[in-house]
Design a protein around this nucleic acid. Structure first.
Lengths: 359, 359
DNA sequence: TTGAAAGCGCTAACAG
DNA sequence: CTGTTAGCGCTTTCAA
């Protein structure tokens, strides 16, 4: 049986409020007799193995110290950079005295249990929630932080500057001398604001350099194959929306007896570990995904502590992407001349930022 | 302001206990006047937008309807098959009226907040927790379910039969005609019971077939390279502990100008999506990871509902692995004769179970 | 079947 | 600085 402040109060011969007060982390005494008594109470509490009861405190304060991770579908829940975002969230949240609970929207029962029954003090959102959920959050006055989406400018938001990312990707290829550069979005990719933004940045950069954007939006890999093996206007480089396209492209090339960067320069987004071990290691646009989570959690804690003060509109934090050059990009036709060279890093002088492989 | 049962009671002209009783999901009335009154109360509750307060219920019942996901380190939290296990857990848990909260052990504050302050009704463990955590769980009488680990036979456990998996992997290669078969564990792999079990199954199968086990335990990739390029007793096949080794092997082969399965047959564990898109698609030992989570959650709900009844020792559920043959394994030396063939599936008749690629 | 009343364990006013 | 006194919103006896 867990011990309560009343049992401690009785054992120490003081009132329960004294126990509660003394045990609070921010307690300070000025008079020395008070300090002495406080120490005694604390010692007794420790001896009796006292632990505050979070459930009781939650009822009393109206705060659960729990934040919800609200997601619409778990199909892609742990895909891509989500995992790193979650790490950032949990690390920051736990350090601040909160914990994180899953809150899926797929099943009505799930989110009602968590949101409507007042089990969370705040909600992380990865997109605009459906009407009933949004209403419930508003009714319960639950502060919201939007992550990796620009959907609702009235809530604090942490986003990646994907337009800049799209630019960087295209510019890297343009600077290598490419002109026929594809942008590919796989049909299976879920709708997300980053899709349009990356395309936008890519298209801008292309036009700035007098090149024509060639976007393969939600098209099958055959479209890529055709563009890469065409006689005229053969594509020599491709920007992949994310790592999935990169894998598929790589696979397609392999089936065709082609390879990157000899026949096609490949650049993608999201710097997952496995990208470094692709053959060749993938040039990519990466960003600090964990930072999205930690920045979001910091904002969340601030919001909750401030008692859900009216959100400052436009409180958007933007994470800058960065180019990580590895071996899947090269000047056009360069490799084609010496197709049979081995794949040694040392022989590819244009590689400077190559990250050491974890082998 | 959220509405309470008292407000409903007043509006309906009944007592708060009647409201509470009527609103309970299992309420049934025999007398018709009671039914009528119940309907009226329910309607008023609906009109007023009543939602039960989970925090209040938690205090009153001593149950939070929350289960903790207890993990020692988040370094590998979302790696490998964990994500799928989590999916299984959350889906089953939410359907049963529970939710899941992260509970990291790395930071003292984190787990004390969740476990010691009685915020969870149960705990999923992925290994034996350190002493203070185990003590806290016991003191709070929090039921435990162990997942993907065989550490504590006194708690309900869901495991994968990794000895069988190791056997299957080795036997597949042996049946293809291989004799010099490596088993490789990368130095970065965290300690886990599956390591030893997979090795055990592999070694058994090897001995059964009169072959000598050659285990490279926590050795760098150079050891693999040496074995694969050796003049005598050249290794023609390798069993990788998991997908990470497979990536590294694949990469190493590529650097050397070699390829699978021509120069080395490669088989690994864990059937992640990206394995299908490797070049070549990876033969692997997979298993239904989501099932681990859902089975664990089912056991958990049972435990919690039964009021933490004394656990039946040996309540271990085992998930069977299965061999998924793709293109990274082939008879030894087969490919070597026709090194310049293209990588078309159609030309590799020994491939039968090849799974359609999601391209 | 209903209502009154006593908790659950902690927080928070407010006198003293 | 301490103790008293009400709650927080729901569950749960136990009479009526």
């Amino acid at each position: 049986m867990p011990v309560t402040i009343y049992q401690i109060a009785e054992a120490a011969g003081v009132s329960s409020s004294t126990v509660a007060r003394v045990l609070r982390p921010d307690f300070t005494a000025t008079r020395s007799d008070a300090t002495a008594r406080a120490d005694r109470v604390r010692q007794i509490a420790a001896e009796m193995g006292y632990r505050p009861n979070g459930r009781a405190r939650a009822l009393s304060t109206g705060k659960s110290d729990c934040v919800g991770l609200v997601y619409a579908t778990d199909d892609y829940l742990f895909e891509g950079v989500h995992s790193d975002i979650f790490l950032g969230i949990t690390r920051t949240l736990h350090a601040g005295g909160f914990h994180l609970a899953f809150c899926p929207l797929q099943d009505d029962r799930g989110w009602r249990h968590v949101i409507e029954e007042s089990r969370i003090d705040g909600a992380f959102l990865f997109g605009v929630p459906p009407r009933p959920v949004a209403d419930a959050l508003r009714r319960q006055c639950i502060p919201q932080v939007m992550l990796a989406t620009d959907a609702d400018p009235t809530a604090p938001t942490v986003v990646v500057d994907d337009v800049a990312g799209g630019r960087m990707a295209a510019e890297h290829l343009l600077e290598l001398g490419h002109h026929e550069i594809l942008f590919w979005v796989h049909p299976e990719i879920a709708e997300h604001c980053s899709v349009g933004q990356r395309i936008e940045g890519y298209a801008e950069a292309m036009r700035d350099h007098g090149a024509a954007p060639r976007t393969l939006f939600r098209q099958p890999v055959d479209a890529v194959r055709a563009a890469v093996t065409a006689r005229s206007r053969r594509a020599t480089a491709i920007v992949c929306y994310c790592d999935h396209e990169a894998l598929v492209v790589q696979h397609m090339l392999w089936r065709e007896g082609l390879s990157a960067p000899r026949d096609l320069s490949v650049i993608a987004f999201n710097d997952k570990k496995s990208m470094q071990l692709m053959t060749p290691p993938l040039t990519t646009i990466g960003f600090d995904a964990e930072r999205i989570g930690s920045a979001g959690a910091e904002a969340m804690i601030r919001l909750i502590r401030s008692g859900g003060a009216p959100t400052v509109a436009g409180a958007t934090m933007s994470i800058a992407p960065r180019l990580i050059v590895r071996e899947s990009t090269a000047p056009p036709n360069e490799g084609r001349r010496r197709a049979s060279e081995p794949n040694r890093v040392a022989k590819r002088p244009h590689l400077q930022n190559t990250i050491a492989l974890s082998e």
